[in-house]
Design a protein around this nucleic acid. Structure first.
Lengths: 358, 358
DNA sequence: ATGAAAGCGCTAACAT
DNA sequence: ATGTTAGCGCTTTCAT
């Protein structure tokens, strides 16, 4: 009877104070020590079945939840990981995130998403924040402004596991996951060539990004293999990937203004693909007859664009899954890992009306 | 000289152990107590200018950063807020999130995003996690599966500030932000009527959601005002908002299979709008001549759809900003707030080819 | 003006 | 099998 009263009062106390149940409450109510309760809760073999049952049932009744903040402070890990991307309002990245989450969920990790909006400053602030929140690891795709990697290097040197995806860097030794950007661009370009286009342009993102270089190399290689000379004026860099107003329009205008006009475009990102389509439509350029186009995009709407857009699709979901699996391996490894892997996943070209002359 | 050595050694120690500098380190190195350092760091008036300067400079040199986990544990607040939405791969929600982040950033709050993927179970797990991570408040748009609100009610009763947006509930008294869904649907329907459509269907999401009811009411009201009888068979509910395979296709097929066929559609969400467009294209239905369509969508690509899609656009960015401002007011209020506000922001109808007969 | 000590919730080394 | 204690990093009350 006394015990019953005690339980009641603790419950009421906590309820009045609007605070969560703690191990201490349970210990007090049950006349045990906090360590016993703690051990019982985690099913330690040192605790008698009887006590375990008592504790477990009481904890259940009070809907006890361990305080992860306290756990993090103690263990210096949080079973959560941080994602650093430029934009979530982007099919590719939101699909990658879904891949990450699917693995995280099944392995009991929580995911904190942050956006840099292509700003170096924001990227630094976000990584600092995530690190200070004791994330166990980081999944990073670099912002377009990022050239100095010291914010990440420092954390990595301190032992924080990091896996890069999509926009990776050669400056850091760790696991990386990318789409086969070279092949994707190669296929797109080769396909345009075989469709009869001659002056194929490449509208792409900031020149220093890893993916930009890979895609440009694929584009060049396809040209070379078909004996088409490379023309620098056909490559247009949109520093902010079309995120900034007018960027794509200017690129398109430049291509249309060339003495020897471009007759097709390989667009290097989601935003650029749709941006080119929009710009061309506004200027009444007939696609594909006046201008063919193939775009890197993970949009699910390519079929209802006008015209339906030929696309190079990145395996975004798998990129996310692979990156998360790699990160968990790093986090949970008992021994320091010294050999790292760069996983390259295949892209998929789907031909639609935008690249096939009528 | 001795002090210099001490500094060196602490730095080295920490550096070797790959751990962050703590107040304790600073105290030890400077021969002060932790409380003095703590006070100096926050500029307490009780500390002499001399000591303050010493501490501040040393902290600066070692790049000291307070440990937010420890702060959270102590203060039971974290200067971070949680977002609970169904999907970030959705123009509307990613735009709302950008609005939230813009305010959060300027006010020094961090944002943790979580997705329910329309699953009640995930929504509950996510809210529990966020709460246990000591977020200072929650910004919530309910999942389609959610009918039981006890997970949120409990937290709210315990004093956790919550602001609802988009998919709100009448069961809880707090601030809410929505688009003027009634008006949006009314305008869309009235516009289709004035364009000469007669059998206007409504393809919408789960019937119990607040926004569904509001939009349905607007649709009905427009019909009534134009003396068109309401026909239940013209309203099709897609329980998962088109997230599940074939949902939208079935709705479209049902409308096409009616004895008195529908001749226009008001689609109630991003996914449903594009889903209907896709389904109609596949079935070779000519838009708008055989079927007109206006959709609730925040896509930026409506102009390059075929045909360009007439849209009801929600002020997503402002919804996010308003919700975040309201939440901060709740969080930072000294006194308990008892009177709550539901802010209704206007939608915008843009007429494009999909709803104007040729 | 500064220090000692307690406590936030939890775990684990060390008793017993 | 269970309890005591210390400690994670920080703030704050209470001494001095």
């Amino acid at each position: 009877m006394l015990r019953f009263c005690a339980r009641q009062s603790v419950f009421l106390e906590r309820h009045m104070k609007f605070e969560a149940i703690t191990i201490k409450d349970i210990a007090k109510a049950l006349g045990l020590s906090t360590s016993t309760v703690s051990r019982a809760l985690r099913g330690s073999y040192e605790i008698s079945e009887e006590t375990k049952k008592l504790v477990l049932e009481y904890a259940e009744k009070l809907n006890y939840r361990p305080n992860p903040i306290a756990l993090s402070l103690k263990e210096k890990r949080s079973r959560s990981i941080g994602i650093v991307v430029c934009e979530i309002a982007n099919n590719f990245f939101s699909q990658v995130i879904n891949g990450i989450e699917s693995i995280a969920y099944s392995k009991g990790y929580y995911v904190i998403i942050s956006q840099s909006h292509e700003s170096y400053e924001r990227e630094v602030a976000n990584t600092q924040y995530l690190a200070s929140r004791s994330v166990d690891g980081l999944l990073v795709s670099l912002s377009t402004e990022t050239t100095d990697l010291s914010h990440l290097k420092k954390l990595h040197d301190k032992g924080l596991p990091i896996v890069f995806f999509d926009r990776i860097t050669e400056e850091m030794q760790t696991h990386k996951v990318i789409a086969n950007n070279f092949n994707g661009a190669y296929q797109a370009t080769a396909h345009l060539i075989s469709s009869g286009f001659q002056r194929i342009a490449h509208v792409t993102i900031a020149s220093h990004l890893s993916i930009t270089k890979e895609r440009l190399a694929g584009y060049k290689s396809a040209l070379a293999d078909h004996n088409i000379p490379f023309d620098e004026s056909l490559v247009r860099y949109c520093k902010y990937g079309g995120l900034i107003y007018g960027e794509t329009e200017q690129a398109v205008d430049a291509l249309l203004g060339l003495e020897k006009k471009a007759d097709a475009i390989v667009a290097a990102s989601d935003k650029l693909s749709t941006g080119c389509l929009t710009a061309l439509a506004k200027r009444n350029i007939k696609i594909p007859d006046q201008m063919g186009i193939v775009g890197f995009t993970n949009s699910l709407l390519t079929d209802i664009f006008y015209p339906p857009l030929s696309s190079i699709r990145q395996p975004a979901l798998e990129i996310g899954q692979t990156a998360m699996e790699m990160l968990i391996r790093l986090i949970e490894s008992k021994h320091p890992i010294t050999s790292f892997e760069t996983r390259v996943l295949n892209t998929e070209l789907t031909v639609r009306a935008s690249s096939v002359k009528s």
